[in-house]
């Protein structure tokens, strides 16, 4: 059994244009601040949440449901931080 803590959270893409390059870049920038593994699942596909190309290849449109899966010491914080991006619809009043 893996002793690393895991944390999962479902998020919904609310962005009208879907998960295009800018939000994908924001996710990766935030995810890379954490040491845990971060997988993002859409349907039966799971990709690396720290890879822009992986996330772009999901083509997640408005309304898509994604599952965030963190694995590692700071998994809970990482999932929380990424989920917060979705919750505020990737709006940011400060440069990342």
């Amino acid at each position: 059994m893996n002793s690393n803590p895991t944390c999962t959270r479902e998020v919904i893409v609310k962005l009208e244009n879907g998960l295009h390059i800018r939000p994908v870049s924001q996710i990766v920038k935030v995810a890379q601040k954490f040491s845990c593994e971060l997988a993002i699942r859409k349907g039966d596909r799971t990709v690396d949440g720290k890879s822009i190309l992986d996330l772009m290849s999901l083509a997640a449109e408005q309304g898509a449901s994604l599952l965030l899966e963190g694995r590692g010491d700071d998994a809970a914080q990482a999932v929380e931080a990424i989920a917060a991006l979705f919750e505020r619809d990737f709006a940011s009043d400060r440069p990342e």
């Binding site: 822009i52 992986d54 290849s57 083509a59 449109e61």
Partner: peptide, 17 residues
């Protein structure tokens, strides 16, 4: 046509991987 843009990005990124 935001969907077309997303699908083009999906296509490009899939090959670039």
């Amino acid at each position: 046509r935001p969907g077309d843009h997303l699908r083009a990005l999906e296509n490009i990124s899939r090959h670039l991987r």
